[in-house]
Simulated assay, not measured.
Amino acid sequence: MSLAFGFARGELSPADVAGRLSMTVAARTREETRFLSVAADYSEWISPDELPGWENDLRAAAHSLTASTDLGSGTGVPGRGAIG
């Protein structure tokens, strides 16, 4: 999932991820479901006290997702099961 990879690599901010959810496809794996679920919890009304915890949860979900795919290997070459 390109959102997770972009976030994990520091190319996207947490708000970028939340704002781009409408462009994603349905989750196919448990890791994708978790990442999308955490990202969907973002709201412009999230309190400043809650934001660091949400960002940490999103980062953990992104790392879990990237580690579960061939793209997480760092080769930069999509694997057979990877989605964008």
Rank of each mutant, 00 (worst) to 15 (best):
L65Q: 07
A67I: 05
V77M: 05
L3C: 00
T24F: 03
R30V: 12
R9M: 02
D41A: 14
S73C: 08
L36C: 03
R34W: 02
G6F: 14
T29D: 06
G10S: 02
S37D: 09
D16K: 06
W54D: 03
G79Q: 01
A4K: 02
F5Y: 08
F7I: 12
V38Q: 03
S64M: 04
G81N: 02
A40W: 03
E50K: 07
S47Y: 12
R80W: 05
A82L: 10
G72P: 02
I46F: 07
R59N: 12
L51G: 09
G53D: 13
R28D: 07
L36G: 14
R9T: 04
V25I: 07
L65G: 07
S47P: 07
M1P: 03
A15E: 10
A4Y: 06
A15C: 05
S64P: 00
D16F: 13
R20Q: 10
G84L: 04
A4N: 11
S13C: 09
A27G: 10
I83N: 09
E44R: 11
L21K: 06
S64L: 14
R59S: 10
V25P: 01
G81S: 13
A39L: 13
N56V: 03
A15Y: 06
A4V: 04
D41S: 15
T66L: 00
A18M: 00
L58S: 08
T66R: 14
G74L: 09
E11W: 15
G79T: 00
E32P: 06
A62G: 11
A26G: 15
L36Q: 13
L71W: 07
V38L: 06
S43R: 08
A26V: 08
S68H: 09
R20H: 08
R59P: 05
A62E: 00
D57Q: 15
A15R: 10
G6L: 12
L21Y: 02
R34V: 15
S37T: 13
D70E: 07
G74I: 02
G53A: 15
P48Q: 11
G74K: 10
E31I: 09
A82D: 08
S47D: 10
W45F: 12
E55C: 15
E44P: 02
Y42S: 14
T24L: 13
T24Q: 07
G74P: 01
A8F: 12
W45P: 01
S73M: 08
S47A: 12
I83V: 09
G76C: 01
E32S: 10
